[in-house]
Nucleic acid binder design. Structure first.
Lengths: 193, 193
DNA sequence: CCGATTCATGAACGCCCGTTCAAGAACGAC
DNA sequence: GTCGTTCTTGAACGGGCGTTCATGAATCGG
């Protein structure tokens, strides 16, 4: 019931995601977000209260878009091995020449420093749990024992975090694919118990 | 040939390592280091030039002490599986109630933002290579084909990075040990090719 | 239209933090 | 002892960045 907002929050958040993703929270200056969006400080603070508020909104946006898209592959690909291979193929592609060259915003956030921030911590931990649950669904769908599926899913989540770290060294596609092949041999294919 | 320094660089660096490890580069204030060491800004800048200089010196110290100690287990434990199990046992112990609760300074640094800093990047990448080489030695010592050893070593390094990330969520010992068990089943024990 | 409300603008503020600096103190060389 | 050099001290500076604020514009309800 007054003057309507002239910018779309979603578009601003996409820019913010990009910046936080590449440069981290501390490394990103609110002024950068303003430059990238054409917004002025007042508008940003009017919409998101805080730099922290902007960051949290960006985290949520990341979870809903970037992250959900990758996890979607796991649920939508029929065949367990194919689903997982498809998931990692998507990751590797984006790590070679896409936005995942900077790893994963969630992983970066977990490492950066927000261990003391409850809200942020919860978002990140929930993300890890979501990914793990998706892996579990794939394995169980394939007929694996749920307990064994849980173990392997946790292992895969850990491996994905490792990949996200390694991505920051800008490895070539060959190296990434070799890593994935090696890990999948351990986690996806049959293995002696 | 004048007034000698009153503090030991090593002791200062140990403090700095601790702070950078827990709070990151941006999250650590030079004043914090002064408080922790009793030094005054002038002394710190006299000895290390920069905050960056202090950080790089701390990184080197970390590599020489913390990191080398863990890698040492790999070389000094006879028996490949025992060596690797010993290495991860040390990691897990320190992640549960030691300084590795904050993961690994190298991993954290790689994620934090210094992708543009050549010197820092080199230190971190060299650290990863050192760890990888140690894993390779273990495998080869056990009679494994060098090419296969290289692949598995790279996979283990990646997994260690993942562990370092997961450590930041403060998981319990049980979860960490399960992760390690799961990964070692894939990388260390025999597996079908 | 008109008032109320919200939004946009962009300059400005205040704090924090990396860094410097001037003064004094301690030591080695001779 | 004396001089020169290096270290220590702690206050101070300067810039950057998160945040605010006063002003003007735009929109909606009635």
């Amino acid at each position: 019931m007054a003057r309507p907002r002239e910018f779309k929050e979603a578009a601003v958040l996409d820019r913010a995601v990009d910046l936080f993703w590449r440069r981290g929270f501390e490394g990103t200056v609110v002024g950068d977000v303003c430059d990238a969006t054409g917004l002025h400080p007042g508008s940003v603070y009017g919409a998101f209260v805080d730099k922290r508020g902007l960051f949290i909104a960006a985290l949520r946006r990341y979870a809903e878009r970037v992250s959900a898209k990758a996890i979607g592959v796991l649920d939508e690909t029929p065949g367990g091995a194919d689903a997982i291979r498809g998931y990692f193929a998507l990751l590797v592609d984006a790590m070679v020449d896409g936005r995942r060259r900077s790893g994963c915003l969630m992983t970066n956030t977990l490492v950066e420093r927000h261990a003391t921030d409850k809200t942020i911590m919860e978002l990140v931990v929930r993300h890890l749990a979501t990914l793990e649950a998706a892996f579990v669904r794939v394995f169980v769908r394939d007929g694996m024992d749920p307990a064994e599926a849980a173990k392997r899913a946790a292992g895969l989540v850990c491996f994905v975090q490792g990949l996200n770290v390694i991505a920051r060294t800008r490895p070539g596609r060959a190296r990434l694919e070799e890593l994935v092949r090696s890990a999948l041999a351990g986690f996806v294919e049959e293995r002696p118990t």
